[in-house]
């Protein structure tokens, strides 16, 4: 009973799951980015080979189910928490100066998260769905030509713009998310917490900046 409430029922438990799934999703983002960078530094075939590997190598397939579960848990848990938070203040303030004592990102995690989720749905429809269930042509190595539809998508300005905005949003989400996850897990230390803060923010900027760079690269690069 104690264990159950401690790990699933209480407000703190929900937060632990948010933190753990969040950190796990960040690790996925890093892998994802490494693959994406082949668009910039590799060839179309490299990218397709990478995509094929990610969808067929058994251990990665197992981890991918964990990933789907994490996304779902992070999103559902987040929505539950946000609803509880709203319910905790049924009558709002006439005047509320949130900026006086907290950063913008930290105050808008739910909003940023929901936008990220929307992006994710669109993004998965465009690529993940096509890769798994669509009928993509094959490239020279016999891999599905994910590269082709990726470039095609990014060459549409509105799609790239949406992608970039979503990455900015994700950046803000991570800007607060990393240090928040450490705080939630209680992993704090007078010396290392400032390091975690800086590292988290750096990661947010570099990761999301790099992601956002790719569609821009596709747009402006004449060779693709």
């Amino acid at each position: 009973m104690t264990l159950k409430r401690g790990l699933f029922g209480s407000s703190l438990a929900r937060k632990y799951w948010m933190a753990l799934t969040g950190l796990f999703l960040i690790s996925f983002l890093v892998i994802h980015l490494v693959g994406n960078l082949t668009i910039v530094i590799g060839t179309a075939d490299d990218f397709n080979a990478y995509a094929a590997f990610m969808t067929s190598f058994p251990p990665i397939k197992i981890i991918s189910y964990l990933l789907y579960a994490s996304i779902l848990l992070h999103a559902v848990d987040g929505i539950v928490l946000a609803r509880q938070n709203r319910a905790a203040r049924p009558v709002g303030y006439g005047e509320y100066r949130g900026s006086a004592n907290a950063g913008w990102a930290s105050r808008n995690m739910a909003l940023l998260g929901i936008f990220t989720l929307l992006f994710l749905l669109v993004h998965m429809k465009s690529f993940w769905f096509e890769m798994h269930f669509g009928s993509l042509p094959l490239d020279a190595n016999g891999n599905k030509d994910l590269f082709g539809i990726t470039v095609a998508a990014f060459e549409q300005v509105w799609y790239s713009a949406f992608y970039v905005v979503a990455m900015v949003s994700l950046g803000f989400h991570l800007w607060h998310g990393v240090e928040s996850a450490f705080q939630t897990m209680g992993w704090t230390h007078p010396t290392y917490t400032p390091v975690v803060q800086i590292a988290g923010r750096t990661l947010a900027v570099v990761l999301c900046g790099a992601f956002a760079m790719i569609p821009l690269y596709v747009l402006i690069s004449p060779n693709i």
Binding site: T2, R5, S10, N85, G103, R107
Partner: peptide, 20 residues
């Protein structure tokens, strides 16, 4: 455990670590 439990029962919101 008991204090957190009571805190939840009272209907307070959750911590999002804003630091405010």
């Amino acid at each position: 455990r008991n204090m957190v439990n009571q805190m939840d029962l009272e209907g307070f919101g959750n911590c999002t670590n804003t630091g405010a």
